[in-house]
Design a protein around this nucleic acid. Structure first.
Lengths: 239, 239
DNA sequence: GTATTTTTCTGGTATAGACCAGATTTGAAT
DNA sequence: ATTCAAATCTGGTCTATACCAGAAAAATAC
């Protein structure tokens, strides 16, 4: 005997998903409040939230903390094998990028920086933290660790645009090799707040180690993307 | 005035996460039942489930439907830029791969197959469905569509191993170009059941279009990975 | 008109309880 | 000893209710 009953929370999920897919709910539209949905579908608010969280995990809707639930915009294509900057990539897909500097400091290298960047513990390292937005919506925060030996005074230059370009034009540094890692991870409370997301929400954690033409590690970047923003897309030639 | 109280569900999350990270709970260990955790931490079962689902979304634990919660094994590194087969990749990381054929059929090409594979609607296409396991745990199901014109009789050959190798050795087909896409998506009820996961659970959806030396599309692969299995890892040379 | 306070609305956390379906274990019948 | 049925345990779904903190809107004071 098979279980055939479709749970209420999946019915609401399907109902909303259908409206989103057929376009009667456009990106960034606010959904009715949880209490309104509860009344409209005559189910408990807990069940409503189960449906909403399901849709959130699928990337169909997102929430602004204590403000409401909204329809997600389409994902941004990202090709890790191409070194296209965030700004260029977003613009190329007809959308509007933005960068906000959260902080820029010179710090003493920690043990972790020592291991990942081969900088002596206590030696100076630049830490740049930025938030980046697409069409006005915060989509990632990044922590960029840079070796100041290779680019002294970097923090006094404009940092809203592509770092890679600045490194090339101002310091003659050409990134020749990049090591990328990514997997889902939870956001800690600081970054969650900066993305206006509940603490612990899943994100796509992406690290990028960039090496110059002499194989020095120039930059170690940690990116915390909202989990529903990216679609990884790439072409590989099997030589 | 800032909100400082740490919610109960996050405390339980942290408590379990700590035990997992420090190794006092080993991979594939069964956690106490939800009702036992509820009693042990003196909180409501709903709150316990909130913590467990949080850990699940982080990939630290997984569940076998109606059987319990278990500690997740480490992620498998996967480099999409290298064409290493599943079997080889799993073995290279000291783990035991397994493949189960779910079905193999010759079908009439659908509209969707026509668009993705450039095969006339109604013309034959091979569909191979496999489940793959690591250390006895189902981690993905895949739907492989193959153009039979390029490899007649393929379905009568052994299909448990690397398809790419079979295509090369039996038909002289060399995959020269691959287009890969991936993003999180929900599992439909069929695949969810095949992975012993609740319907709608998030997975990593990965598609792979493989072209031969004459740029014919040989194979279109849809892979549904458990969301907590992979860590994408790659090195890019910026020529 | 503008600033400030108050109220209302929103989602976030939490409790207590209930019943279901499937997996597992127990116990009884053979 | 083996088979089969019953009891138990597990997670899955759902209701009703409560209070909190922060965001937004409305009302008030200046």
């Amino acid at each position: 005997m098979k279980y055939l009953h479709i749970p209420y929370y999946l019915r609401l999920r399907d109902s909303l998903a259908k409206k989103i897919e057929e376009g009667s709910l456009l990106p960034h539209t606010k959904l009715p409040s949880e209490r309104d949905l509860k009344d409209a579908y005559d189910i408990n608010r807990v069940t409503v939230r189960q449906a909403l969280m399901q849709l959130e995990s699928e990337g169909l809707i997102y929430r602004l903390i204590r403000r409401g639930w909204y329809v997600s915009p389409p994902r941004l294509f990202y090709d890790p094998t191409k070194s296209v900057s965030f700004m260029d990539n977003v613009r190329a897909q007809g959308r509007v990028p933005e960068t906000v500097i959260l902080s820029k400091t010179e710090m003493a290298a920690s043990d972790w920086v020592n291991r990942t960047m081969d900088i002596a513990v206590g030696a100076p390292v630049y830490l740049l933290r930025r938030r980046r937005l697409i069409d006005g919506r915060a989509v990632l925060v990044e922590h960029i660790n840079v070796n100041p030996v290779l680019c002294p005074g970097l923090l006094d230059l404009p940092l809203e645009c592509s770092l890679t370009e600045t490194l090339k034009e101002q310091y003659g540094i050409k990134i020749s090799r990049t090591v990328i890692n990514m997997y889902p991870a939870p956001l800690d409370s600081t970054q969650a707040e900066e993305l206006q997301v509940v603490a612990g929400a899943p994100c796509l954690y992406l690290t990028r180690a960039s090496y110059d033409q002499h194989d020095n590690i120039v930059e170690f970047d940690q990116e915390f993307w909202r989990h529903d923003v990216l679609e990884i897309s790439m072409e590989v030639n099997n030589a």
